[in-house]
Amino acid sequence: MGDIRFGVDDLAQLRFAVSPLWETIAALRASADPGRHALHLPWIKQALTVGRERTDLLPHLAELEALAPPPRCPLAEIEEELATLAERPERAAPVLAWWEAGVRPHWPRIRAVLEADLAYRTRQLAEDGIQEVFAHLHPSLRWSDDRLSWTGPPVGRLTRDGGGITLDGGGITLAPSAFAARCVLLPGRPAEPGRNGTPPCLVYPSRGVGTLWERRAEPGDGLARLLGRSRAGLLGRTSTPTTTTGLARQTGLSPGAVSQHLAVLRDAGLVTGHRYRREVYYRASELGLALLERTP
């Protein structure tokens, strides 16, 4: 048991993030303990066949968990995080190999679940405030006064003595994880000459993980006749935010073809797009979602 104590500045610096590096490490632990991660058995059966990339890293799993850097931005790139990890242990190359073999082929599906969680949390923050976000983040967490407390096993390597930490005004990052079985606190990095500091990150189990490996039904014939099968299929995959590249991987269409179909769907008011960094994320509009729900 322990707690994280917040100041006013820390609440103002609250961030959300998705960390592909942490998901890669958490996926490694899940593959090593199938009994505790039964929801992931469809994926674990494939992961066990990956071979050397996975088995080479398993003896170093605890080290990787302890040294994994907290994410610096909402949608971090694996290459950026690996560059930071490489400054700590000499295992960035095998981690990248495991990412490529075991996680990256499924990343569009995983990231869609994580982004849906972020969309839910940010909407909850806007509508109900930070106390409600913390109150529903995970059953082991409790928000009271100026602190976030937890019960159960210690959270992260900062709290093994059962104590707590006080944030220094830089806030904290909250990151959902599809593979985490419990909350984990990743320690931040202090500022150094020429480098900004990184706040701590609280990793928590994501919502919606139970649907991660479900087989997705294709839109009905009625919608396919209305929009065309390719556009209907793309619309059905935008119930959570996704990119042109992600849709191309899921459907087998070329990125150019996906862009053309999305332009038609956007002009019809069925999808919306917003840019973050170098990518545009598309999501079905209320009209698009209603069409998906009502078309047989």
Rank of each mutant, 00 (worst) to 15 (best):
Met1Trp: 02
Gly2Met: 09
Asp3Glu: 14
Ile4Lys: 00
Phe16Tyr: 09
Pro20Ser: 07
Leu39Asn: 07
Trp43Leu: 02
Lys45Asn: 09
Gly51Trp: 14
Arg52Tyr: 09
Leu61Arg: 05
Leu64Glu: 03
Glu65Asn: 10
Ala76Asp: 07
Ala86Asn: 10
Val95Pro: 12
Leu96Asn: 10
Ala97Arg: 11
Gly102Arg: 00
Arg111Ser: 11
Arg111His: 01
Ala112Cys: 09
Val113Asn: 02
Glu115Leu: 14
Asp117Trp: 04
Leu118Ala: 10
Ala119Phe: 02
Thr122Ser: 12
Asp128Pro: 13
Glu132Gly: 03
Glu132Ala: 10
Leu137Val: 01
Pro139Met: 08
Leu148Val: 14
Gly163Met: 07
Gly170Ile: 13
Thr173Met: 12
Leu174Pro: 08
Ala175Lys: 00
Ala175Gly: 04
Ala180Cys: 12
Val184Pro: 09
Pro190Cys: 13
Pro190Met: 10
Val203Phe: 08
Arg207Cys: 02
Arg207Tyr: 09
Arg215Met: 11
Asp221Val: 03
Asp221Tyr: 02
Gly228Met: 05
Arg231Gln: 09
Leu234Met: 05
Thr238Phe: 01
Thr243Met: 03
Ala248Ser: 15
Gln250Glu: 15
Val258Thr: 09
Leu262Pro: 10
Ala268Tyr: 07
Leu270His: 06
Leu270Cys: 02
Arg275Ile: 02
Glu279Phe: 07
Arg283Tyr: 03
Glu286Ala: 13
Gly288Phe: 03
Arg294Cys: 10
